[in-house]
Write a protein that binds this DNA or RNA. Sequence first.
DNA 1: TATGAATGAGGGTTCATTCAT
DNA 2: TATGAATGAACCCTCATTCAT
Lengths: 228, 228, 228, 228
Amino acid sequence: MHQGGEEPMEKKKHKGLFQARRERRIERRRQEIMEAAAEVFAERGYANTTTKEIALTADVSEGTLYNYFSSKRDILLAIVDEQQNTIEKMLASVGQLENQEDIVSLVYHSLNSFLTRLPFTRAVLTEAWVDDDILQEFVMARLQRIARLVQTFIAKCVNAGFFRPFDAALITPMVIGMFLMPITPALRGIAPPPTPEELHALVESAVSLLLDGLRVQASEELRVRSEE
Amino acid sequence: MHQGGEEPMEKKKHKGLFQARRERRIERRRQEIMEAAAEVFAERGYANTTTKEIALTADVSEGTLYNYFSSKRDILLAIVDEQQNTIEKMLASVGQLENQEDIVSLVYHSLNSFLTRLPFTRAVLTEAWVDDDILQEFVMARLQRIARLVQTFIAKCVNAGFFRPFDAALITPMVIGMFLMPITPALRGIAPPPTPEELHALVESAVSLLLDGLRVQASEELRVRSEE
Amino acid sequence: MHQGGEEPMEKKKHKGLFQARRERRIERRRQEIMEAAAEVFAERGYANTTTKEIALTADVSEGTLYNYFSSKRDILLAIVDEQQNTIEKMLASVGQLENQEDIVSLVYHSLNSFLTRLPFTRAVLTEAWVDDDILQEFVMARLQRIARLVQTFIAKCVNAGFFRPFDAALITPMVIGMFLMPITPALRGIAPPPTPEELHALVESAVSLLLDGLRVQASEELRVRSEE
Amino acid sequence: MHQGGEEPMEKKKHKGLFQARRERRIERRRQEIMEAAAEVFAERGYANTTTKEIALTADVSEGTLYNYFSSKRDILLAIVDEQQNTIEKMLASVGQLENQEDIVSLVYHSLNSFLTRLPFTRAVLTEAWVDDDILQEFVMARLQRIARLVQTFIAKCVNAGFFRPFDAALITPMVIGMFLMPITPALRGIAPPPTPEELHALVESAVSLLLDGLRVQASEELRVRSEE
DNA sequence: TATGAATGAGGGTTCATTCAT
DNA sequence: TATGAATGAACCCTCATTCAT
């Protein structure tokens, strides 16, 4: 998206094959660089990463970076872009939430998206914590779409009498936090990402917890004493 | 600081006042600088913050910073330390969790601690996302104490038969995420912190949600249709 | 430098030339910088010299210095090292002193070594006056080797009855001082270095003075009166 | 000499005692500071010494330094000045050199002057190696007076036929070097200064060496072989 | 007069970016 | 196109000097 697709349009026919191969080569190289950069950004943060490190990790020279990206920041933006697209694609296949499986599926796929290209996610999150543009244009944009899905679903269920009369807007962040926190250590890089099975178990538990709560039944005042 | 404490014992009274005033002045200045620094760190991140900005914000010269801190990083560490103490103090007054009020109280005070000196918290969190030392020595240390309190409480309730048979270790992060996410926008600086009333409402809702879940009752398969 | 030597063995020829040229270019540049630095260090002393001055004198940018040396001090150490080697090489060709010509030769070549790359020597000496590490590891190391040669020679001659019964250890510094002082103004930079002829004449005179003293002959009490 | 003696001349009578005591106090303090400064300058060199270190060593505050000296450099100049005076005084009592005792005496007292306030000498020498003003105005000025004494003496002896026909100007630096080198380690601070007795022995040996040379007698070609 | 905190110019060093090869 | 040396702005930090107390 940034600095791409600017080859001349004429000559397209004749060069077809040649051009296509060239473009693929370029795209492949861009990906290599982005992967390398994401890795280092994830590990040390954007500001603490030097172009030299990126180049070293990508196994190219510093100068070469600038043949594929116009600046260090451009690399970050490309990473963000890519992550955007990944999640966007995932979201595109999700319609309205209609039942429990839909939730499980949405959550599972969302978490999965975050985890599959972990360095990308880490790089983005880390920087989003500091960079308002990235936060808004990427993280919030995606997150709010998810939030809206959830919130709408909850509101509907409340209206339908299936859910207790919670304020959907108030509840939604809690719900999201519930799903997100368990993978935070992985996002931060201090724990291995869960296996698909673990992830499934996790989502199932979370959904169960969410729907029916901790308590055995809605009983009167809870009381535990250590001596009991 | 370098040659303090070695004053002769006679004269104590006279020097006492003098010295004490001086120390208070120094401490006050340190605080001013830390506050200024926290603000800028919070806004732009540690690495993107220049000592010049800190000095400007603190309304002193750059050189003055170094009369109170030995390095830019030292300022950050002092901020982290201070936050540590704030939370530590809060935690010290919390015993075992024994009932619903205890949870509400713990959560409320925890969130409050995070929110009261918001720039400090933001500065610490932002850096913890990138700096392993700060993450471990500060954030994780505190967070794990909280987590252990929660986990123990859940396990106890499960054993007592009050809670459904969840795996406490699995559930705890979800519980924490549930409480934390609603204030995340404030922590990130893109929303005003909640008023105490809002915070209370929030915690109450969260606890209710947590205990009894979204659902009116543990019913059969949930199903909502958009057309309904 | 950081990723050198790991080239595949095929291609050796082609890369060889390339690589060699590159290495020569690097070495040449290092030398240029060292020469420039030595000049300024000699003139103003290490501590009073700014990297900006060095860069200016070397006709490169400040940043470039750090492509060839890791710090200002590293430049100084490289200079010291180079001087070490120069003198070391000179000393390597000197065996035991056995006769007058040997002394003349040793002295001549020693002084010559000091004078040939005068800025280097000045830079080293100047700093040695203040920096214990450089004094010990460089100046004293070399000087003591020379001193040992001289002392051994004197002791031998004394034992052989050729020299009067001086304490060799006591005398040696005097002998060295005798040879060194005449070129001190040049070392300090307030006199042009002697031409080779002057240097020869100087050494010859010194050796003669050293061997037979000032006096016409060992006579009775010397007495000069101004009115005579 | 620098920044001194600028008190108003009127009122002299009435204030006599008071004023005198005050001046003595001031002078004493100046001396204390100079001594402290000389010590640190000697140890680390002028440029590497901070005013804070001087203040610390002198046991006063940094600000106080500036009540007695107008700048850091002024302290150095005062030290130089004082050393000048010390040597000047010594030289004032020396007339023309007329015999061996005169030489011994001159040398002994010269070396003694250098050694008695060693930090002062070290400070001056160290800086003279880098600072042309100090070199010329202090070190060379004194040294050349000594050199002239020696040179004149030698020339006279040569003319009188007592000394072999050396070129006095050529020989003089050697003579001085001979006397100076043995105390150089002390001047540099890597050896304790010689005791008066050692100093005497040293001078005696040097003079003997100087007058009659190393050799037993002016013999034919010297030859030593290790195997002999 | 003595103090030591405040100052800010200037130091060494880093690093994103450019460009000749 | 790939390279990596060159660049210089900007960083963090030091320290001689000033000045309010």
